[in-house]
């Protein structure tokens, strides 16, 4: 019994990481209907950025966030203004193709710079520390990841619904022309949206790199998890994204408990089941 409970708890905490993968993807889809195929590779890029920061500055990976988050945001803003804005229009194909190309380019660049050897961010004692609750032993790092995920969602939710920036995000999402009429430069607003999305990728990348080893090829796998979490939770809902991440995480750990080979498969099956039963996810944003 405890074993199963343990699997579920681990799954919930893992769901926090998946929610972090997914939040940035969901955010830019909501603001500009852009499906970013390179999202997973950008998370991996952030992990490597952290690796370099740790090596150069000799700091703890969590402290490297202070470098990684601003750097990723800048990359996001520039990427959007110089490249992705040119692809946005009535046709959804160009942004898909361009971000797919970007994904390939990023993987190759990382391969050139860091080789295919697996790397890991060394978090030190925090990686093995745990707290016990009853019969359960809960790792500090997964717990911290989950708490950060919740905080990130709270933060994004607050930005979206309580700030001028959030108002601008929602306005361009509703109607780009009219938003432009009100004096908003949509190219700039989109740039800020991708900057925010990549800031979250930065956090996700560092936590991922402390949890498991990574190499330049793992981006597409993270993209799949992010997609699944977004779809399960319902497009356009941030809290839904957290719920989606948790469902996916629990499915994987429970599946893995039944048979270690089933871990990923169980996640995909639950995703397909949700898609069959609730095609718009658990918490779809209300259509106007």
């Amino acid at each position: 019994m405890t074993e199963w409970l343990n699997a579920i708890v681990q799954g919930v905490l893992l769901g926090g990481l998946y929610a972090l993968f997914a939040a940035g993807l969901s955010l830019i889809f909501g603001v500009m209907r852009l499906v970013n195929i390179a999202h997973g590779d950008l998370i991996v890029l952030a992990a490597y950025m952290a690796l370099t920061t740790v090596m150069v500055m000799g700091v703890h990976p969590l402290l490297a966030l202070l470098v990684v988050i601003p750097l990723m945001s800048i990359v996001g803003y520039i990427l959007q203004r110089l490249l992705l804005n040119q692809t946005l229009g009535n046709d959804i194909l160009p942004p898909l193709l361009v971000t797919f190309g970007l994904s390939v380019i990023l993987q190759n660049m990382l391969l050139e710079a860091y080789t295919a050897d697996p790397q890991k961010l060394n978090g030190g004692a925090i990686e093995t520390a745990s707290v016990s609750a009853g019969n359960l032993s809960i790792g500090i790092l997964p717990l911290l990841t989950f708490v950060i995920a919740v905080l990130v969602i709270v933060c994004l939710q607050w930005i979206f619904y309580n700030t001028a920036l959030g108002r601008q995000f929602r306005a361009v999402s509703d109607n780009q022309d009219i938003a432009q009429l009100m004096g908003l430069n949509k190219g700039h607003v989109f740039g800020l949206a991708l900057a925010l999305s990549l800031a979250v990728c930065g956090i996700a990348g560092v936590l991922l790199g402390m949890r498991t080893s990574f190499d330049p090829s793992i981006g597409s796998g993270r993209l799949i998890f992010a997609f699944e979490a977004v779809i399960i939770g319902g497009l356009g809902s941030l809290w839904g994204t957290l719920a989606g991440g948790i469902v996916l995480g629990v499915a994987q750990t429970v599946g893995g408990k039944i048979n270690p080979g089933w871990q990923l498969l169980a996640g995909h099956i639950v995703f397909l089941l949700v898609l069959a039963v609730r095609p718009r996810g658990f918490f779809p944003r209300v259509e106007h």
Partner: peptide
């Protein structure tokens, strides 16, 4: 000029069919 630049100069349009932002 792009619409946002025109707006900054001091020209405003109340569009046909109102076109409010539904999420706001």
């Amino acid at each position: 000029y792009r619409a946002d630049k025109v707006a900054k100069l001091g020209i405003a349009l109340v569009p046909e069919g109102r076109q409010l932002f539904p999420s706001l």
